[in-house]
Design a protein around this nucleic acid. Sequence first.
DNA 1: ACGCACTCCGTAAACGTTTACGAATGTTGG
DNA 2: CCAACATTCGTAAACGTTTACGGAGTGCGT
Lengths: 364, 364
Amino acid sequence: MKGIRQLAEHLDISIGTVSRALNGKPDVNDETRRRVLAAAEEFGYVANQSGRSLRQGETKVIGLMIESSMETVENADNFFLGVTSGLQSVFARHKLDLIMLPCPSDEDPHEYLQRMVARRIVDAMIISETHRIDRRIDLLSRAKIPFVALGRSLSASNSAWIDLDFEGVANRAVERLIARGHRRIAITAPSSEVNLGYIFLDGYRRALERHDIPFDPSLVIRVKSSEQGGYQAANELLLLEERPTAVILIYELMAIGLYRRLMESGVMPGRDLAVIGFRDAPRARFLQPSLSCFRMSLYDLGVELGRMLLANMPAYQDFYPGDGRNIIWPLELIVGESDLFDPRTGEKEFEPERLIFDNKTVES
Amino acid sequence: MKGIRQLAEHLDISIGTVSRALNGKPDVNDETRRRVLAAAEEFGYVANQSGRSLRQGETKVIGLMIESSMETVENADNFFLGVTSGLQSVFARHKLDLIMLPCPSDEDPHEYLQRMVARRIVDAMIISETHRIDRRIDLLSRAKIPFVALGRSLSASNSAWIDLDFEGVANRAVERLIARGHRRIAITAPSSEVNLGYIFLDGYRRALERHDIPFDPSLVIRVKSSEQGGYQAANELLLLEERPTAVILIYELMAIGLYRRLMESGVMPGRDLAVIGFRDAPRARFLQPSLSCFRMSLYDLGVELGRMLLANMPAYQDFYPGDGRNIIWPLELIVGESDLFDPRTGEKEFEPERLIFDNKTVES
DNA sequence: ACGCACTCCGTAAACGTTTACGAATGTTGG
DNA sequence: CCAACATTCGTAAACGTTTACGGAGTGCGT
């Protein structure tokens, strides 16, 4: 079956009517519509997307841009596939399809996005890993492509974004550690210009200030977002002259490398050093002692992302009137055994152990 | 900048010439071409993909279909993002773009693919997780869409595929264990109809036969492809009346759950039970004792996949003449400590420990 | 001066849809 | 029986490109 023309010939109907029948337009007899749908089903006819989108100026496709650098590959730990499910669940209701656009690691993300946008292969975009100032946001704004940024950015002052509550996480981690008697608390932060680093540190500083603990720059450890980053962070930690009693991690995978390096040096996490991790990544679930960290539902995040995006698309915003311009996505603290001791006495407090292999699938 | 028409008006040239200039066609003056390219650059003009592909019947886009079910999300461990890099490196040479098509978990993969194919949004496809008989293959064949299956299938007798060397892995694992004195060797296999299960078991059976060890169906443990699957596999293993001295795993993540369950029961991997894992997944790199398993380069696999696909596309096959119809992708054995004991004496043989945190990034 | 080849460019058709418009037919109310 | 309207459908234009074709201009040899 080549196209709508052949289908129309076979039915001995004009192509206009066939098109109307297939697209649920009103001006068509019930019986005719039935015949058309039956024939389309029989021949497996589906409208050619190029022709369709050329005519109506929209593609019914949403793009999710991800960076496929090896660093991301190693470390994202299926973050994007997780949100994808949530996204699709809301897009499906509007017959929108989601495609993932992996930016090649050797290409400039800005140019890649520009190319994709100019080709008009998508109606709207979701971009991730936003930088502090991110030209992609200006690009999309100027091109009038509806979009949502996963990760806030200074460039996005006027556009939609949704971001994890990094400040809250740092804040609560510090509060929790201080409440346990810690005073010298190290924190890790990204070495690159991604915006989340600034926010993370802000939460950390503010929480310290609230308790009149002076901010000590030497306790900020710049790391790469990987297991190796965690390993090196532990290294730097061990080299500090006055060793901190606690450390707060960023990036889900850091904990693994950090644990390993600590163990190698005979420093036991949860006894000699309190550790609070970031996201509850699948790869980190096995750690012993179990890691205190934060958890979120990737699926729900995807749903919210999808809703927010549609709220910014003229054709769909009637369906999502309330959905605002940006969201700080909360994370829930999961108590493990990695921060249960008192730094002054060394005594271990009892708290329920985190269950790993319960029957319900643990959300990632 | 709306389209080529406005660009042509601005330059006071006909749109035909503009198009020829942009696409590197011969019949155009050097000076004119320079002006056109400069103007296009200035206004950020890129040809609308719908119009272009409508005219020339191709989209310059390759689709990689992946299943985004939660099971995959949890367990694939960035497998696809890994091969993506390799794919793009070869596609980039031909100005082809790769998009990932995540099939919603609640939609039938066959219908999803049919929809995508009929919409003609891609020129060619890579499909993964092929089943023993997979209707998607017939669909693509009939639609005359060039494709490569990642994973062999009975349905793909006549088409291109590339698959991991499951048979070889099972084979070498058994050989290695037998050489160490094991006679009672359990193996895990998928509970679903994916084709790799059959092949994996074939390799296992043949290796046993070669050494006159009878095949014992009770030693085949059906598992889900997850950590939980590994946990349950260990459970079943422990319940066997005459406990095997070794077990061969499938799926990269199984080892984690298996280790955990064994430890809980005081059965030490590498001392009380030899374990040989499958792929050298990032999440399994930390295991203690380190896991003997197999390794491959996802990047190289992606490259080979890309080459094979292009070899099946009329427009590109001149560039890849030699690339055949299918490949069995080899995996390299990485010796760990999980299978270094003699089941009769319990003595541990010395072999070099696997390095995890070397400087070069370990390929996943 | 003529024919010829060559270079460069404009014209218009085609790709597969959707949709505004109007025509044809049937229906209703008076 | 006619006007007015409703229902259903066909016609043709439009979307933004690419490309086959042919025409205009130039240079060259005879």
